[in-house]
Design a protein around this nucleic acid. Structure first.
Length: 606
DNA sequence: ATAGGGTTAG
């Protein structure tokens, strides 16, 4: 057999994703004394990447060097990609840096950029992207696909929007993969309105587009949106796949909608997806959380491969419904099948103990968590433990546990103690817990009510009054409304009626002008009218005027508010965008604590 | 002939 026939076989197998077989063929080829060439390596390396075999991969790298195929651009790119997919980003980097040729290739840059992004080295990816552009190497839509997923966190939203902008400018958005990727980016940033806008604007929605939007809603807890979109998808004649149904099932879980869940299960059967592990996990979770433990357990038992996620779902189900003993039994069984527990499964185990009143066993498992499994407990574990001790009346121990914490307790930890004080009528400790909890979650009204009830149980009318005054005070004062707007890498903060900004004069002049333009006929609809009487200028109006003054036409303006946007602001924004032809996105700042410091870090990356 | 990418569960 000639080299070319070996290569053809390799190609065929790799095309069919039979990567293990492809590597076997590669080995046979060597054994029969045939030398691999530049057409051999890309397939062999791709197989190593797909199977994540770093050792075989570096052995292949040696063969590449020995046969002198190194200068081949296809081989270089395959090497870079292989190392990245095996999580050896630095080795990929070395191949890239040592071959000047690579640094002229778009594909090679693309592979390396995507590799850095997917190995959580996004800032390096952005640096590479910058270097790529400085070197004059052409950027294409695949470059975007490597970069955009890195913006999947609110901090990077602005950068993601920049990438969106350049994609549109360069016409990369014709490629639906790029748009799907951007859509997912917005979803992961929690910017669902934006994702939806992109979704609605897509002329041809493929299955992946529907899935991205459906899972996006599911991940953000918008269960009703998921169900209505799923219906819409079916009415368009698009057939769901396992990814779609996972999103739908997770929403059924949220809503406790076992009926719809059952329908989905039938659909799974009829489509032949019955063996999909993701779907089975989602089904177990749905039935377990809806209280149908028999059904959940039946599906769980039938699963040939039970992952940590499957075990967590079933354990959580029993724990949630007060069957702590069963939950613990299952946990022990899981450990016996040599599955290493993680932090998440411990949350369900500890909360199972507290639901069932298994105080000492809970303490045991909590101790084992760190000692046996080397898992640092986080605040979510401590709040379970405080709840556990507190419900058992061991308030002193609960308090001492909080004091011994290495991580900072969050509101839920002190809140659990406060809840225990209610059960055991301990006013003194309740006051202490409240002091902390109110500092961490000053706007959570539930804790005020709890303390008030504790005072009321103790017939401490003075206390009740004190809390009531406090609540009224807070309500009266509220947190002052403020808005952020990002401009050139900095976040500008405005309070309502603010006059401290150095561009105040210009801003107010701009607002006047806008207000006048709004009076023009044709700008406001009839039903938009008659709402001009507020005295204090809202913070977001100031932010918007500032942004209009300081950003380029055509770019989108993101306004971040710390309070729920009232009807007025929506109207204002609607009218302004009509007048100046700019796009606005309003976001809720409560999801963006990192903006609280007033600075955004995207400057560093662009 | 050969390289780079988008959606999923606790």
């Amino acid at each position: 057999m000639w080299e070319s026939s070996w290569n053809a076989r390799l190609r065929e197998l790799s095309k069919q994703c039979l990567f293990f077989e492809a590597l076997t063929v590669y080995r046979q080829m060597l054994r029969r004394g045939h030398s691999p060439n530049a057409f051999t390596f890309p397939f062999a390396l791709k197989s190593c990447a797909a199977l994540s075999l770093p050792l075989t991969g570096s052995l292949l790298h040696c063969h590449v060097l020995k046969t002198g195929c190194e200068p081949e651009p296809f081989v270089q790119t395959a090497l870079v990609s292989m190392y990245c997919k095996c999580c050896l980003v630095d080795d990929a980097r070395k191949v890239f840096d040592e071959n000047p040729l690579s640094r002229k290739l778009t594909v090679c840059y693309n592979a390396l950029i995507a590799g850095h992004t997917s190995n959580s080295r996004f800032s390096d990816a952005v640096l590479l992207f910058r270097r790529m552009r400085e070197a004059g190497v052409a950027v294409n839509s695949v470059t975007m696909l490597g970069l955009v997923p890195g913006c999947a966190a609110p901090v990077y939203l602005r950068l993601g929007m920049c990438l969106h902008g350049s994609s549109v400018k360069c016409g990369f958005d014709i490629d639906s993969s790029v748009t799907n990727c951007l859509l997912t980016m917005y979803v992961k940033c929690g910017s669902l309105d934006h994702a939806r806008k992109l979704f609605d604007a897509m002329p041809e929605k493929g299955l992946i587009t529907w899935n991205a939007m459906i899972s996006g809603y599911a991940q953000n807890g918008l269960a009703t949106h998921v169900l209505s979109l799923y219906k819409e998808m079916e009415s368009f004649g698009v057939c769901p796949d396992p990814v779609t149904l996972v999103g739908v099932l997770s929403s059924c879980t949220h809503l406790g909608a076992q009926g719809i869940g059952r329908e989905v299960e039938r659909r799974i059967e009829s489509c032949g997806f019955g063996s999909n592990p993701y779907l089975n996990n989602a089904l177990v979770n749905m039935y377990a959380r809806c209280g149908n433990l028999v059904k959940a357990h039946t599906i769980f038992d039938a699963m040939p491969q039970k992952s940590l996620v499957s075990w967590t779902a079933i354990i959580g189900g029993y724990g949630l419904h007060g069957q702590g003993e069963v939950a613990l039994e299952l946990f022990d069984k899981m450990v016996m099948t040599r599955i290493r527990p993680d932090k998440t499964v411990f949350v369900t185990v500890l909360s199972a103990c507290s639901h069932a009143g298994l105080t000492d066993r809970g303490l045991e498992y909590f101790a084992a968590m760190e000692k046996r499994y080397g898992l640092q407990p986080g605040p979510e574990h401590y709040s379970c433990m405080v709840d556990l001790l507190g419900r058992a009346g061991r308030l002193k121990e609960a308090k001492e546990l909080i004091e011994s914490m290495l991580v900072n307790p969050d509101g839920a930890v002190w809140g659990a103690l406060l809840g225990a004080c209610k059960i055991y009528k301990n006013v003194e400790l309740a006051e202490l817990a409240f002091e902390h909890v109110v500092e961490l979650e000053p706007t959570n009204i539930g804790y005020y009510v709890l303390l008030s009830n504790i005072y009321s149980d103790a017939k401490n009318l003075e206390g009740v009054l004190k809390v009531r005054v406090m609540m009224r005070e807070r309500k009266l004062k509220k947190e002052p409304g403020f808005s952020y707007v990002e401009c050139k890498g900095t976040v500008h903060v405005f309070l309502a009626g603010d006059r401290t900004h150095r561009q105040t004069e210009e801003i107010y002049r701009m607002l006047d002008e806008l207000e006048n333009l709004m009076m023009e006929p044709g700008v406001s609809d009839e039903n938009d009218q008659g709402r001009n009487e507020e005295q204090l200028v809202h913070s977001e109006k100031l932010a918007i005027a500032f942004a209009l003054l300081n950003t380029a036409p055509g770019t989108e303006i993101v306004v971040i508010k710390n309070l729920r946007v009232c009807g007025d602001c929506h109207l204002f924004i609607k009218l302004v965008s009509r007048i100046v032809d700019r796009q606005f996105v309003v976001r809720d700042a409560t999801r963006f604590h990192h903006f609280r410091n007033g600075v955004c870090s995207c400057k560093d990356y662009w």
